[in-house]
C-alpha cells in the first residue's frame, strides 16, 4: 500500500476532521432516530436528546479547531500560522470556510429542534433545515463540490450513515434491558429499518466511490486513494456482517428470551461502534491526504 506519510499537522487535521464527522453524524442521526422512534420511554428520549446536544457542541468545537489547524498547515506547519489572520481568512474564504459556516448553522439548529417548548411543526422544520445544512456542508468540500449528482449521493450516504451510527447507543441500552416486550419490538423495528437503509447506503456510497475512481475498479488496488478505500470497504463488510447477524440471529434470539443473547447483542453493537469509528478515521485520512485516480 502506498505510504501516507502523516506529519503531525496532517495527523491533527485528520483527527479534527474525524471528530467533526463523528460528532455531526451522531448529532444528525440522533435527531433522525428520535423522529423515527417517537415512542421511546421519556428517560431514554432525554438521554438521546442530551447526547445529540453534546455531539452538536463537539462538532462545533472540532470545526473551529479544524479551521485553526488548516491555517497552521497552510502556513508551513506552526502555531503562529494557526492564528495568522491572513491564513485564517484564506481558509474562511475557501470551500472549507463555506463548509464551516453551513455546518455551524446546522449544528446550532439541532438543539433548537429538540426544545420541547416549541410547537412540533416548528421543531420538525428547524430540525430538517439543520440536517440539510449539515449534509450540504459535507458536499461543499472535495470531489462533490460543483457536482449536484455526486452531492446528492454523498448527502444520502451520510444521512443514512448518521441514522445507523446514532442508533447504536440507544440500541445498546435497549439490549441491556430487554425484559420488556417493548424493547424487543424496538430492536426488531430497527432491523426492519435496516432492510431499507443498508441497500440504499451501499448503493449511494458505492456509486459515489466508483464515480470518483472514474468507473475503474482496478483503481482500488493501484492508487493510494483506492487502497485506502479498500480498507474502508473491508471495514464496511465487517459492519454489514455484524448487522446481518444482529438482524437475523441475535435480535430474534433476544425476542425469544434466550438468556445469553442480550449480552451477545451488546457486544456485537459495541464492535459495530468500533468499526464505525475506524471507518470515520479512514474517511478522514482519505479526505485529507489522497486524491482519486489520476
Amino acid at each position: 500500500m502506498a505510504s501516507i506519510g502523516l506529519d503531525p499537522w496532517t495527523a491533527g487535521r485528520v483527527l479534527a476532521l474525524a471528530g467533526f464527522y463523528a460528532s455531526a453524524l451522531l448529532a444528525m442521526g440522533g435527531l433522525l432516530f428520535r423522529a423515527a422512534f417517537p415512542g421511546q420511554p421519556p428517560r431514554d428520549a432525554a438521554v438521546l436528546d442530551r447526547c445529540t446536544c453534546v455531539a452538536a457542541g463537539c462538532g462545533i468545537v472540532m470545526l473551529l479547531l479544524l479551521w485553526l489547524l488548516q491555517a497552521a498547515y497552510l502556513g508551513g506547519g506552526n502555531w503562529a500560522s494557526a492564528f495568522n489572520p491572513v491564513l485564517l481568512g484564506i481558509v474562511g474564504e475557501s470551500a472549507q470556510g463555506e463548509r464551516l459556516r453551513l455546518a455551524l448553522v446546522g449544528l446550532l439548529l439541532l438543539p433548537v429542534a429538540l426544545w420541547q417548548g416549541a410547537p412540533r411543526i416548528v421543531r420538525y422544520a428547524v430540525g430538517a433545515l439543520g440536517v440539510v445544512l449539515i449534509l450540504l456542508a459535507f458536499s461543499r468540500v472535495g470531489h462533490t463540490r460543483g457536482s449536484p449528482w455526486q452531492s446528492v449521493l454523498l448527502m444520502l450516504h451520510l444521512g443514512l450513515a448518521s441514522f445507523w451510527a446514532a442508533a447504536l447507543p440507544p440500541l445498546y441500552r435497549v439490549a441491556g434491558s430487554v425484559s420488556s416486550g417493548a424493547s424487543a419490538e424496538q430492536l426488531q423495528r430497527f432491523g426492519r429499518f435496516g432492510l431499507l437503509l443498508v441497500p440504499l447506503l451501499l448503493l449511494a456510497g458505492g456509486s459515489l466511490a466508483m464515480w470518483l475512481m472514474g468507473g475503474r475498479p482496478g483503481a482500488l488496488l493501484d492508487t493510494a486513494y483506492g487502497q485506502l478505500l479498500s480498507v474502508k470497504l473491508t471495514l464496511v463488510m465487517g459492519l454489514l456482517l455484524l448487522g446481518a447477524a444482529n438482524r437475523w440471529w441475535l435480535v430474534p434470539a433476544v425476542a425469544r428470551g434466550k438468556p445469553e443473547a442480550p449480552l451477545q447483542l451488546r457486544c456485537s453493537i459495541a464492535v459495530e461502534a468500533c468499526l464505525m469509528v475506524m471507518i470515520v478515521l479512514v474517511a478522514a485520512v482519505l479526505l485529507t491526504t489522497s486524491s482519486p485516480v489520476r
Binding site: 498547515y73 497552510l74 481558509v91 463555506e98 468540500v141 472535495g142 463540490r145 460543483g146 485529507t288
Partner: peptide, 10 residues
C-alpha cells in the same frame, strides 16, 4: 510550497 485548491483540498 503549500496551497488550497478551489474544492477546499489543501
Amino acid at each position: 510550497w503549500r496551497g488550497i485548491a478551489e474544492d477546499g483540498h489543501t
